[in-house]
Computed example of a mutant assay.
Amino acid sequence: MSQTIQFHQILEMINDLSLDEQDDLINIIRHRQIEKRREEIAQNIHQARKDYQEGKVFRGNIDDIIAELNND
């Protein structure tokens, strides 16, 4: 409930900003989202490389994958 109240308060505060300030805020948030997503992608790549080096990645064609799934 507290989070909802805070969110509502934030929306009210944004509403009080000028249109230019709202545009600036939108741009800042977009850039932060883009940067956060880049960091997530970099972490996923790092984990994928680690898994590959440790032999935790299955490689093969579709028939190999189906055979592997049927063995479980």
Rank of each mutant, 00 (worst) to 15 (best):
I34H: 08
K50T: 10
Q53I: 02
M13K: 14
Q33N: 13
R38L: 03
D16R: 15
K36N: 09
H46Y: 14
T4A: 14
I62T: 10
H46E: 15
F7S: 05
L11H: 14
I26G: 06
L25Q: 04
I10G: 09
I41L: 13
N61T: 03
R38V: 04
L19W: 05
D64K: 00
Q22A: 03
Q3T: 10
V57E: 05
Y52F: 12
L19C: 10
H8C: 09
H46Q: 15
Y52E: 03
I62K: 06
E12F: 13
D16M: 11
L25E: 04
Y52N: 04
E54G: 00
R30Y: 04
S2V: 04
Q43A: 11
R32G: 02
F58D: 01
G60I: 03
Q3P: 01
F58W: 00
E35I: 07
I14A: 13
D51W: 00
V57H: 13
R37Y: 08
A48D: 06
I34F: 06
H31E: 06
D20V: 02
E54A: 01
Q3R: 12
L25V: 08
N70W: 11
I65S: 08
I5G: 01
D16T: 12
L17P: 14
L19S: 14
E68D: 07
R38I: 04
I28N: 01
D51H: 02
R59F: 11
Q33E: 11
Y52D: 01
Q33K: 08
Q47K: 10
I62L: 12
D63L: 10
E21H: 08
Y52M: 06
F7K: 09
L69V: 06
H31A: 05
Q43E: 09
I29N: 10
Q43T: 05
Q33V: 02
G55R: 02
Q22H: 07
Q9Y: 08
Q53D: 14
K50M: 13
Q3K: 14
E40S: 09
E39L: 01
N27Q: 11
H31C: 10
M1F: 09
N27P: 02
R30H: 12
K50C: 08
E40Q: 12
V57Q: 08
Q53M: 07
I14Y: 05
Q3C: 09
N44T: 06
E54M: 01
H46S: 07
I41P: 04
N15C: 07
R49T: 04
V57R: 10
M1V: 08
I28D: 01
A48R: 15
T4Y: 10
E39M: 03
K56F: 02
Q22N: 06
S18C: 08
I45A: 00
E39Q: 13
I41F: 14
H31F: 14
V57L: 15
I66C: 05
N71C: 09
Q47F: 03
G55D: 00
Q6P: 06
I41M: 11
Y52I: 03
I26D: 04
I45K: 02
N15W: 13
L11Y: 11
E35M: 15
Q22C: 01
N61M: 03
Q6I: 15
H46P: 01
I41D: 07
R49L: 15
H31I: 06
D51M: 01
I26L: 15
N27K: 09
E54T: 01
Q53H: 14
E21I: 13
N70H: 10
